[in-house]
Design a binder for these strands. Structure first.
Lengths: 256, 256
DNA sequence: GTTGTTTTGTGTTAAAATTACGCGTTTTCT
DNA sequence: AGAAAACGCGTAATTTTAACACAAAACAAC
């Protein structure tokens, strides 16, 4: 542990280190499971444990020969989250949302660290071979949540306080689904009604009547219909209609 | 602007300064308006402008004679928000929720600063004399939001990026009201049905039919009834029933 | 390719919730 | 005192939700 002598541009009190972590949700079309992307930590602390991808925020400060700051550059927390994601998992994520901060004293044994957590929604490509990207791994969400829930008191599954973060992310995902058809961001462009339903069921942990579900979705008017070679029908989100319906408040019936 | 030479316990890159800001909502029974607590800034930057109460996170680090860290103390961001609130406005707030972080580069002209924003709900005491607490002032929310909305492009009403924060806080308050009867936290213990309705209308910016509103509230089962001297009726939130109904999912009909 | 099983598309109907008003009385304001 | 607003109690029409039936197409196993 080394001390740090870089300039801090005006505010002279000690500062916490700032990181971002990200809960990446993906829907696996092959087994129709909602999954999260975890990485195995290669270094201490928590070496060998699974954790959310994330890392420290980047601030570049240039000082002249007298030690005065002549140039500063920094990224926003959102940019930080996206960059770390790309670095650690190779994912280029569009749909990313802030979840909240975690700052309990002692949460990082190295130093006083606060993290700004994000969650992101991606479509898992159907036939990706072995999981790429370092030691990143897709794990079924329900497995993670169950493991966490059944842990003996005081024990943790993931590194740091990531157990809490992933639990909060799931709750937030459930709630946001009531305001916004987020689910589409987890699916490929076109999908079947039953796939969409399975996804809703996976997120909300509750089952729907197949026929009522389909009617509700279709009645909302945001889906375009595409026949397939077989008798089955595929659907696609109509973004214009969705945005319009959102403005005019006609999406309330999408709440389950 | 001075440089900073204090130790940073292990993580050796430059760090941003960290602050918290708080949007305090209060419902003024006298004029039945939803208001926010703003403070007039006494110092640069943005001297004389209104701003959200808030400030820097407190970290105390003690080093021995060799400059090594022997003791650290820090507060969580939530504790920081509560402390700053107390210091700047005298308010001791129970109901406080995290809103999100703001970290756009350049948002604070002094230095790289990220803020974690909170929102809080308080009951404004009926006959508080002149606004106490330094230069804190209750301002009707709709006035602030309208001012912000009608500002010429690029102009701002509040200091820093507090325009965005207060706007986001209002949206969040609206959304959270759909999951939780937050409104009660803005009212005194007992209140009339029309007061409750006015509050809901103020938050959601939408009007309800008096009779339907009352029925919905009463049917939910979370209100206790108290006659008054006059023919009128007062109500009070029954916390036990509320918690029970929340667990058993019987509050869905409280969504408007 | 035949057979049994599962999935998919298309309804109907009863119950529940929401919305829109009517009316007589009490309070409030001037 | 009189007019206007607020209040409590109620009903009817409409919309939304929940529960369930059936046949054709796809799929799996042999």
């Amino acid at each position: 542990m080394e001390n740090h002598e870089k300039p801090h541009f005006g505010y002279i009190y000690p500062r916490p280190a700032v990181t971002t972590d990200c809960v990446i949700f993906g829907f696996d079309m092959t087994d129709e499971l909602l999954k999260v992307l975890l990485i195995e930590r290669g270094i201490e602390p928590f070496k060998g444990r699974y954790a959310l991808p994330g890392g420290f925020i980047k601030i570049e400060a240039k000082t002249n020969e007298y030690g005065l700051v002549v140039e500063e550059k920094n990224e926003s927390l959102l940019e930080c989250a996206k960059r770390e994601l790309k670095e650690e998992t190779g994912f280029d994520v569009q749909n990313i949302y802030e979840l909240g901060t975690w700052s309990t004293p002692g949460r990082d044994p190295r130093c006083i660290t606060i993290t700004d957590a994000y969650y992101a929604l991606v479509t898992i490509q159907p036939v990706r071979g072995g999981d790429d990207a370092a030691d990143a791994k897709w794990v079924p969400l329900y497995q993670v949540l169950n493991t966490i829930k059944n842990l003996p008191d005081g024990m943790r599954f993931l590194a740091f306080d990531h157990d809490e973060i992933i639990t909060a992310a799931h709750i937030r995902l459930q709630q946001q689904l009531c305001f916004e058809p987020l689910a589409f961001k987890l699916l490929p462009k076109r999908f079947s009604m039953s796939t969409l339903q399975k996804l809703y069921e996976a997120i909300l942990e509750k089952n729907f009547d197949r026929r009522n579900f389909a009617r509700k979705m279709l009645d909302s008017g945001i889906l375009d219909v595409f026949p397939t070679e077989s008798r089955n029908i595929n659907y696609q989100l109509n973004l214009e209609k969705y945005e319009e319906f959102k403005r005019t408040g006609r999406l309330s019936n999408l709440i389950f």
